[in-house]
Write a protein that binds this DNA or RNA. Structure first.
Lengths: 190, 190
DNA sequence: AACTAAGGTGAACCATGGTTCATCTACTAT
DNA sequence: ATAGTAGATGAACCATGGTTCACCTTAGTT
């Protein structure tokens, strides 16, 4: 279709990035109420520029989500790589989940905004990558005998989705430790 | 102060109730976006009536939250009563939490709406009651040796706050079972 | 250095939805 | 029954905030 679309102008690319960052920040802070004007201001740009890069608010938020998903997938793959290099799977999983819970504080707001705007956030490209890596990590943990055999990727989804966001750090840590004991506890009774 | 304010008219009380119900339903369904007009329609009333009963949307939502908190406190006390009558504390706690997680699907939306509107939801009267009962239940469970010694009411708050809402029933059940194993698992190592 | 289109600007537009208020209705008390 | 007031009505008002667009700026090119 587009026979090699010519590359975007240098400042355009820069602005696009600034807009995404600003959007993430504003939404994390003010939720779906973050206004386009505010996002523009935070990015040091005029509103019109937002609309040159994204057709509407929904698309903008979707793009932010996509970026998050991508970053998450990267982290997952990095963890898997460390495991293959000899690291213990549970430890990596635990550390990974810790980071996820921290990031969730921002990402949840973003996802909520996406939902509030009726955005279609399903089936982002990077998601597949993350799932594959997660599956590998879980299998490794189970093979090493540290993870319950009934643990699945679904559980990870559940954790992503339900990670508490408006709780103080120590509460978030407690929450994760409760969950982890559910994933790792070795059942003694049948 | 108010020297026996004369009782409200019969239909006024009825309407107030219908409004609260409608508000809960609409907000559960559409989140903070539920409009006053829609709530009014659902209650079979005109908008003006909402404003006779509640000064603004924020207060209305706050009232709905208060109602939820009250119901929750009632349930807690009922559970405690059953324990005192001989029921096993963990079982009651587990059942109670199951109900909470089910109710959360509605209440979370309401609370989210409250937050979105900047309502002050802290320190509702009934909250104290619930806390007292919960403490008693936890102590009982620990005395019976089924609950970890480090479990506190804070954990219950955490559960209320982080119960997943946009997950299918089986996922919510799984979630609770993960959490419960964190509350009840008997640590073997020091 | 001049050209030109990609990119940026921001005042203005408009839909949405919370809120008001002048007016009408119907409970309750006498 | 009737008065009198608490309560109900809903069209209209207005603030908010997403979106548009006619017009400048400037990066990249020759």
């Amino acid at each position: 279709m587009s026979p090699a679309a010519r590359p975007p102008r240098a400042d355009a690319a820069r602005n696009r990035q600034k807009i995404l960052e600003a959007a993430r920040g504003q939404i994390a802070a003010y939720g779906p109420d973050a206004g386009m004007d505010e996002i523009a201001a935070a990015a040091g740009v005029a509103v019109g520029t937002l609309y040159r890069h994204f057709p509407n608010k929904t698309e903008l938020v979707t793009a932010v989500v996509a970026q998050s998903v991508g970053a998450l997938a990267d982290e997952t793959e990095a963890a898997l790589a460390r495991i293959k290099a000899g690291a213990r799977a549970v430890d990596e999983l635990s550390a990974f989940l810790h980071r996820v819970v921290e990031a969730a504080v921002t990402d949840k707001a973003v996802k909520a905004a996406a939902r509030a705007l009726g955005a279609d956030v399903s089936g982002m490209g990077a998601e597949e990558r993350g799932i594959a890596a997660l599956n590998a990590i879980i299998s490794a943990g189970q093979a090493e005998g540290d993870l319950n055999p009934d643990v699945t990727v679904e559980d990870m989804y559940l954790i992503f989705a339900s990670a508490p966001t408006d709780q103080p750090p120590h509460a978030r840590a407690r929450w994760l430790s409760l969950i982890l004991s559910g994933l790792t506890a070795t059942r003694t009774a049948g």
